[in-house]
Amino acid sequence: MADRRDWTRETLAEGVRSGDKRALARAISLVENGDALAYDVVRDIYPGTGRAYAIGVTGPPGVGKSSLISALVRHVRGEERTVGVISVDPSSPFSHGALLGDRIRLADHFTDPEVFIRSMGTRGHLGGLAEATLQAFLVLDAAGKELVFVETVGAGQSEVEVIGIADTVVLVLMPGSGDSVQALKAGIMEIPDVIAINKMDHPAAKTMLNEVRSILSLDRSRAWRPPIVLTEATRGENVELLWEKVAEHRAHLESDGRLEERRRKNLAGEVFAVASGRAKAHLERAVAGDPELRRLLDEVQRRELDPLSAVREIMEKVFKLGNEDGTHTR
Rank of each mutant, 00 (worst) to 15 (best):
S221I: 11
S214H: 13
D179L: 02
H202Y: 08
W224R: 05
P203T: 09
V194Q: 04
G164R: 07
L218M: 12
R213G: 06
I197H: 10
I197D: 07
A223D: 15
S217C: 15
M174T: 12
V162Q: 02
I197W: 06
L171S: 06
N210L: 11
L173R: 00
A223H: 12
I191H: 01
S217M: 10
L171Y: 07
A186T: 09
I191S: 05
R220W: 13
L173C: 03
G187M: 06
E211F: 08
I188Y: 02
K199R: 15
A166W: 11
H202L: 03
T168S: 04
E190T: 04
M200T: 10
K206W: 11
N210R: 14
R222T: 07
D193F: 00
V170F: 06
A166E: 13
K206V: 08
M189S: 09
I191R: 00
I188H: 02
G164E: 11
V162D: 04
P203D: 05
A205F: 11
K199H: 06
S221R: 14
E190H: 03
S221Q: 15
D201L: 05
D167T: 14
I163M: 01
M200Y: 14
H202I: 04
P192A: 10
S217I: 08
S177T: 09
R222I: 07
D167H: 11
V212L: 03
S180L: 10
A196M: 09
S217E: 15
D167F: 13
L171M: 07
A186M: 10
P192V: 03
S214Y: 13
K185A: 07
I197Q: 07
K199F: 09
E190Y: 00
M189F: 09
S221K: 15
I195N: 01
I197R: 02
I195S: 01
S221V: 11
W224L: 01
D193M: 00
G187A: 06
T168F: 00
Q182L: 08
A166H: 15
I191M: 08
S221N: 15
